[in-house]
Amino acid sequence: MLKRHSEAFLLSVIGPCLVLCFLGHLTFVAYPLHKFDERTSTSVTLLIVVAALFSQAVSTLPETASPKAIDVWFFYFILRFFLFFVFHWLVDLQYRLVTDAERPHAIAARYDTLKGDNSDRSLEVRGSRKCPGAYEVA
Rank of each mutant, 00 (worst) to 15 (best):
P62Q: 09
E124K: 15
F82K: 11
T113M: 14
T60H: 12
L2S: 02
Q56G: 00
Y31R: 03
V72G: 00
T27I: 06
L123S: 04
T42F: 13
F22E: 08
R96S: 02
Y111M: 10
I78G: 01
L53Q: 03
K115G: 02
T60C: 04
V19C: 04
A52S: 11
S128C: 10
T64F: 07
A8V: 12
T42M: 14
F28P: 00
E136G: 01
D100F: 15
I70R: 05
E7P: 00
A101Y: 13
P67G: 00
D117V: 12
D37I: 06
A106H: 11
F28W: 08
K35D: 15
Y135W: 14
P62F: 10
Q56C: 04
T40F: 15
F84I: 06
S41C: 06
V58I: 14
E38I: 03
E124F: 12
S122H: 12
Q56E: 04
A101F: 15
T42A: 14
T27A: 05
L97I: 03
R39I: 05
S59E: 10
R121V: 09
A108S: 06
R121Y: 11
V44N: 04
D37Q: 11
R96L: 07
R96C: 05
S119F: 03
D92A: 12
A57C: 07
H5T: 01
K130I: 02
T27F: 03
L23V: 01
R4H: 04
A65I: 08
R103K: 15
D120C: 02
F9A: 08
L11D: 10
R126L: 14
E102M: 10
H88G: 02
G133E: 09
G15T: 10
M1P: 00
L46N: 07
L26I: 00
N118A: 14
K35Y: 11
R103Y: 06
A101D: 03
E102N: 09
Y76D: 04
R110H: 13
W73I: 04
K68S: 14
F82H: 13
K35M: 11
F85M: 07
F54R: 13
S122N: 06
I14Y: 11
E7Q: 05
V29W: 06
S6L: 15
E63F: 07
L114M: 14
A51P: 00
V72C: 06
P132C: 01
H105L: 15
F22A: 05
N118W: 11
G127S: 05
S12M: 01
L90S: 02
D100P: 00
E63K: 12
H25E: 10
L93F: 15
D37C: 02
E124H: 09
D112G: 01
R126N: 09
C131L: 14
A101G: 07
C131F: 14
Y95P: 01
D117W: 08
W89R: 13
C131D: 14
S128D: 10
A101L: 10
T45V: 01
P16F: 05
E38D: 11
V29N: 03
R80N: 02
T99D: 08
V29F: 13
S59Q: 13
L83Y: 11
A69W: 07
